[in-house]
Design a binder for these strands. Structure first.
Lengths: 148, 148
DNA sequence: CTCACAGTTTAGAACTGTTCTAACTCGTTG
DNA sequence: CAACGAGTTAGAACAGTTCTAAACTGTGAG
């Protein structure tokens, strides 16, 4: 919003937008206003876990007008482009993770909270060969936790 | 559904119903016609994986009238009673597993197919201590597979 | 710089799986 | 076997997500 807000914030915002734009171009996605805004929010911090509604509320709260449909579209496009990863832990809603590397999750169901577990620390042994005609695509570990 | 169908089938059906009834009583659930029918289908074979719609179709196809709402109610009651376990692998629908013991799953997403992996064979090591105030409730492993 | 077009966004309708509601039925206990 | 509480039901309601058709916008050509 105002130019009077000071250079620091403006520069940071500009940098963020530039970074996001580059990232989007690399992924073969047109850097539209909406995608740049969403990418800005998503990739500003590492290891974010968002739901569609969640992210829509955030971007709206930030004063940016983006429709819920676009948030869904964007999350899926980002996922397909390898910028996000979908995490399935809850039958009710879909989570998207900005950390696309090899890792697993703690999940606190009562609060819808996801926490990363580094891939190196965890190890799954003894997975049998899948039935004939099938190949392992990915191994997901969800450590469900509760308030102690 | 005639009586002429032969003793073998009739006896098996009666036994099944008796078994189901006993199981329900033990779980503190009134053995209503619907619950007995559903339990009969669910626990006739080991290691079944059903969805609500799925089971509703099956019971209906078997000529038994049970509403979808009752199927949902029953699946949840059975789960609460420890007769079933809910498996979360797909954001779109809920699966229920008749195997309540310690085990994990292969999941073939394209066909909605779940296959058990015995708990003894698989081992998850290196799970870090959960963040303060949280305790591990359960560790779920989903091996996502694809047609080779 | 402008135009035109393909790609994108949007509001709202539609859809899917699940839960709720209020009336009805059934199993159990006395 | 009566009566009461537990269970069932059809259909409405709901949440999250996807679809649709029309409006808009980034991009590359001229």
């Amino acid at each position: 919003m105002g130019k009077a807000a000071g250079e620091t914030r403006d520069l940071a915002a500009r940098d963020l937008a530039l970074l996001a734009t580059g990232r989007l171009r690399h992924a073969g996605l047109r850097p539209t206003r909406q995608r740049v805004e969403l990418a800005g929010l998503l990739f500003r911090d590492m290891d974010r876990h968002v739901t569609a509604e969640n992210l829509h509320a955030e971007v709206t709260a930030a004063g940016v007008k983006v429709s819920l449909a676009t948030v869904y579209n964007t999350l899926h496009q980002f996922t397909e482009a390898g910028l996000l990863r979908q995490v399935i832990v809850d039958a009710a809603r879909s989570y998207f993770d900005t950390n696309t590397g090899d890792h697993q999750h703690f999940f606190l169901e009562t609060e819808g909270l996801l926490i990363d577990i580094p891939g190196e620390s965890i190890e799954v042994a003894g997975v049998p060969a899948p039935p004939a005609g099938l190949a392992v695509d990915r191994v997901d570990v969800v450590v469900r936790v509760k308030r102690a």
